[in-house]
Every structure is written in structure tokens, then in C-alpha cells.
């Protein structure tokens, strides 16, 4: 099934995204027809060749392949920067963080496991963590599989194990099927560095509504993973 849905970003990024006008939003009871206000900022659901990027990271890890890195840089560096700008990071810092993320890609490529995540997901988490370190000055603890208290995953039957490609595919399907009202709050969760309360304020919705939409969206995404989660 060709996914032609266009998930447009509801508001144009400005230097003060927090003061941006609330995006147009229609209630689910009405026919969904979000208009594309700024096609330049469109996020499309056309298939992307994830395998290619994953194998490029693997080439960087195994043979220190500089041309593979150049290709990764060409694809990801401007996207990381654009992503950070949308979250309200100032341009100089977005540039620095994008550079730092790409340096980490080069240095930590050996830690990438193509069975566990796509290249895009792995790079997203690197950029996310660097941004939290740099901008929010907040600590963000992560679980550590070497932790003596860590409870490992149960062994799964072979037919239930999903790889990163399948996961990416399922997540894309789930995202394409999300009702607009849910897709909007999920997108805002990633693209705006705001707590749920501020998202609710911006959409002029009760906080509980934002939370329940996020909850429903997550449930749908998990259902697509067939409760392998």
C-alpha cells in the first residue's frame, strides 16, 4: 500500500515557537481535513530506504568507511539541524549539536546494532541525548543492561522476534493509520520541547484530552507490534 498521506507540521517554525499561533485543529467528530499551510515543512510518509543507512553505519563501524560517513552526513546532518530548530533550539546551537551528533556517529558506530534499531532511530536518540545535556542541563538517566539489578528480556520464540526493519515498517503503518488528532499530539511531542500541559494550552484542549490521545496513539503503535512489546 503506497502511503500518500502528508503529515504537515501545523505551524511554521519561528524564532519564538512558544509564542506561535495555535495550529488549526479540527475535532475528530468532524471530517479530518488538515490543510497544508507550509508544504516546505511537510513530513511525508513515503518509504525511505532504511536498510541503506543502516548498512552505511555498519560500514563506518567495520571499515571506517569515509564515503559511507559522507553519505550519512549528507542525509542526516541537515535533518538533525532542522529537527532541532523546530524544537526551538537556537541556530548556532542546532549547528553545533548536529556536528556533535555526527561526530558521535563516527566514533560510536560500533555500538550501533542494526537488529535493534534503524540508523534513523539510533541517530535520533544520540541527538536527543546531546540536546538534553546541552540545552536543558538536565540529567537524563538511562537503563544500563550491565546493571546487576537489570531484568533482561525474556527469550522469545524465533517467530516472535522482530528486527529493526520490521519494527520500522510496523511503526510506519501505525503512524499512517493514526487519526489526525492523535498524529498531531504525537508529532508535537517530538517536535516541540514542551511538557504535555503546554501542548494542551497551545491546542486549547484539556490536559486530559492530550494525554488520552497520546495514550491511544501509543496503544495503537504497540498493537501494531503485536504486543511483542
Amino acid at each position: 500500500m503506497l502511503q500518500t498521506a502528508v503529515l504537515q507540521w501545523p505551524g511554521r517554525w519561528t524564532k519564538k515557537p512558544r509564542a506561535a499561533a495555535p495550529p488549526q485543529f479540527r475535532d475528530s467528530s468532524q471530517p479530518a481535513s488538515l490543510t497544508v499551510k507550509s508544504p516546505k515543512l511537510a513530513v511525508t510518509l513515503e518509504p525511505v530506504q532504511h536498510e541503506d543507512f543502516s548498512s552505511l553505519v555498519v560500514s563506518v563501524a567495520t571499515t571506517r568507511d569515509r564515503s559511507a560517513f559522507a553519505r550519512l552526513f549528507e542525509h542526516y546532518a541537515p535533518r538533525i539541524k532542522s529537527f532541532l530548530l523546530r524544537q526551538g533550539t537556537d541556530p548556532a546551537q542546532a549547528e553545533d549539536l548536529a556536528q556533535e551528533t555526527m561526530m558521535s556517529v563516527w566514533r560510536k558506530a560500533a555500538m550501533f546494532d542494526p537488529a535493534k534499531a534503524s540508523a534513523g532511530t539510533w541517530i535520533f536518540t544520540i541527538a536527543r541525548n546531546l540536546r538534553i545535556d546541552a540545552i536543558r542541563k538536565a540529567r537524563r538517566p538511562e537503563f544500563d543492561p550491565e546493571d546487576p539489578a537489570f531484568v533482561p528480556d525474556a527469550e522469545k520464540p524465533a517467530d516472535e522476534v522482530i528486527n529493526a526493519d520490521q519494527m520500522g515498517c510496523m511503526v510506519r503503518e501505525a503512524m499512517a493509520e493514526l487519526p489526525d488528532e492523535q498524529a498531531l499530539v504525537v508529532r508535537m511531542s517530538f517536535f516541540e520541547d514542551k511538557p504535555h500541559a503546554e501542548i494542551a494550552e497551545q491546542l486549547r484542549l484539556p490536559l486530559g484530552t492530550v494525554k488520552s490521545r497520546l495514550r491511544l496513539a501509543m496503544r495503537r503503535i504497540k498493537e501494531h507490534l503485536g504486543d511483542r512489546a
Partner: peptide
Amino acid sequence: SAAESVGGEYLDRVEPSAAMKVSAA
């Protein structure tokens, strides 16, 4: 990790409107 792959999808699909000031090299 499912939610992180949503983030990965967004990263792969975001319009790369901001050019980098440096090169891969």
C-alpha cells in the same frame, strides 16, 4: 523503543531545510 523509532521516522522524513555550515570532511 517503539516510540524512539517514531522519532527515527520523523528524523528520516523531516524536510532538511537547514543547511550545515561544515562538510562531512
